[in-house]
Structure formats: structure tokens, C-alpha cells
Amino acid sequence: MQFAIRYLSRYRYEADVADNINALRVRPASTSCQRLDDFTLRLTPDARQHRHEDYFGTDVVEFEVTRPHRELIIDALAHVTTEPAPAPSGSGWAQIAEDGYREAGTEFLMQTDDAPGHTLLAELRSAIDDAASPLDAVLLVAELIPGRLDYRKGATYVDSPLAHVLDIGAGVCQDFVHLGLNLLRARGIAARYVSGYLYTHSHNGDAAAGAHAAGQPSVEVDTHAWIEALIPQADERPRWVGVDPTNRGLAGERHVKIGHGRHYADVPPIRGIYRGPARSTLEASVTMTAL
């Protein structure tokens, strides 16, 4: 599929602010099944853009607005072509104990957040123990999590710990992913956090499909998060397979990846700091148009 993606954030400050320094991770990646055709980023007030690729290979744009201002607009436009990933073949549990697999997985095998002794977590973990293969375990995670947690905006914050999410039994895609990562890593499956865009209304079913059918290819979405798990393959090297615990299934051509990391903090869409009065308001939108 082909998409035009517009990421637009508008920060408004109560009074003049200065030295507004930010790092953006909003640029879609180029991968084996995704191609970035075009990307432009406009900043208001205008600022010089410093690009680099971070440790995990995500493209980062840093910029600073030093003069006093009351509004900051970040307007990014990307054109992306995606194709479905080849179906994973999957194989048995034996392979994930092999040195080659563990070496390929390394830091994605290490827990970043844990809730030792939490009953819900223990229950979910034991449910996965029964999976026939790593691939099955991954698919099971994608089923179990939305079954046990409510999708609820505002219930959690960007830095809510796993224990809190389990306590309230609700969260957003980011929390679902963090829980999934914990379950898979506990089972010895390397898994990483993926930040990106999804062409759908992630939390209320098939609105996007409906919109598309109705001849309205544009949808308002949010930035999205899902999991990539390292799955041993029958006749080849292990492969990273995308799975979306918010939408119960494998990631497909509607998923547009920005980058990945061990957890959210490695790939936040924006991280910034400024000097000035405390309060600001944010209007953020992502518009995806199927071309």
C-alpha cells in the first residue's frame, strides 16, 4: 500500500518560552517491506535540523528554537510504500536456547520493566508456557493482552510502570506492548518495542476500513506501538516478526514503522525541553491517507 502520513504537533505556551530543544523520532524507516519515498519536516518558528541515526538505527531530527516564542509547530509529511511481510514459518522451542539465537537477541532478551509477584502477570506467563512454538506464543500474547486489559486512554502516562498497568487492568497500545515484551522475554523470546503509524482507528474496530470503503481514504490516527519478536525459522536465520497486541494479530502492510528499541523510552516520537512558564497545551494529530 501507499500512504501519505502527516504528523502535526502544535505546542502553545502560556507565555514566551526560549531554548526549546527537541529530538524527534517521526520519520518512517526503510525496511525490507517498507520504503520511504519522501520526507519533509517543517518547523515554525524555523530552526536548523540536525539529523542522525541512533543506536537502534532510528532516524532522529534534533532542533532548537532559542528565541522567545509562544507557539511551536512540528509538521512532518512522509510518503511510504509498504508490502505485506512474508508469512513466518516458525519452528520449535529448542532453537531459542541456542547460542546463535541468544546472540542475535541479546539486549531484547533482557527485561526493562518487571512486576515480580504480580498475580495477573504470573497467570499470563503460565498461559504462554503452553504455547506449541515461539510463533504460537507470540500470537497468543496478541490475543491474551487485549482480552485481559481494557484499552482506555488517560488511564496511564508515558512513564507508567508495568505494575501500575497490571493493577488497573487498563492502558493504551504502549502499555500493551510493554506487557507483551515482558511476557515474551520471560519465556526466552527476544522482543522489541516498535514505534510507528497504523492505518486504522486502533481502538474502535474497523473505522478505517469503513472510511476507505466509503471513498474517504484519509483517517485521523495516533502514533502507534507494536512488538517485533525474534522468531526462529525452519530453514533460515531467525526473523523479526511484527505482532500487534492492541489489534490481535500480526503486523501487516497497514503498519508503518518508525523505529524500535528496548522500550518506549528508546523511541519516543518527541523528547524535548524548554525554558519558560510551566504550562503548555498540545494539539497533536496524525493523518494517514491511502494513495
Binding site: Y11, V17, A18, N22, V158, P268, I270, R271, G272, I273, Y274, R275, G276, P277, A278, S280, L282
Partner: peptide, 9 residues
């Protein structure tokens, strides 16, 4: 002069 610093997410 150092004013307070704030974070954006």
C-alpha cells in the same frame, strides 16, 4: 538568568 526547565513528550 535561569528560568525553570520543562519537558515535552
Amino acid at each position: 538568568a535561569v528560568a525553570a526547565l520543562h519537558f515535552e513528550r
